[in-house]
Amino acid sequence: MAKQAHYTVLGLYGKLEVVANAVDPIREKFAVKDGDIQLLTSAALPENAIVEDHRPYPIVYFVWVLGIVGFFLAIILAGGTGWIMNLNVGGKPPFSWAPTGIITYEFTLLFSVIGTVVGLLYFTGLPDWTDRAYDRDISDGALGLLLKVANVHDQEEAAKMMSQSGAYKIVKGENNF
């Protein structure tokens, strides 16, 4: 996605209602796909409240897969140690369910944590330290409407539309969506 040359426009708005009204005309005008328009905010808004985005984010698969990996890893580690180091400790059996179960529980959860983080990074595309379209006003409460377009003409036009719809600042960029 990043390989193809593209242009970006970032319009900074002050008020939620204003940006809410600005979004739909812009989407219609440039036939924007989900994900090519983003609202950058400093706090989470209810999903699809301003900018609709129906791309799925099934983090749960990462959690499941890594959780299962952790589950079997723990059984191999805790149960397998018992088999290989077959020493009689207090008359306990070589493979003992209680300790294996405990270690398995912990490992499953550990790997689920890892799965969640991997899923988060995968879907958000983080970490990305490149100079992406952004404005530091956003963390102070400004609402940044970020649009990805194909050419300079569209970029100019989108910038104009944003200004007219009440953006107090426009930042234009290239290949930095």
């Binding site: 905010t41 989470a44 969640t116 958000t124």
Partner: peptide, 23 residues
């Protein structure tokens, strides 16, 4: 990590936070 706070990022982020809280 280059966090920008896009609406999709927030949706993913909230989901991940929810999972983490449960775990």
């Amino acid at each position: 990590l280059g966090w920008r706070g896009g609406n999709y990022d927030w949706a993913v982020y909230n989901k991940a936070s929810l999972f983490l809280a449960v775990i």
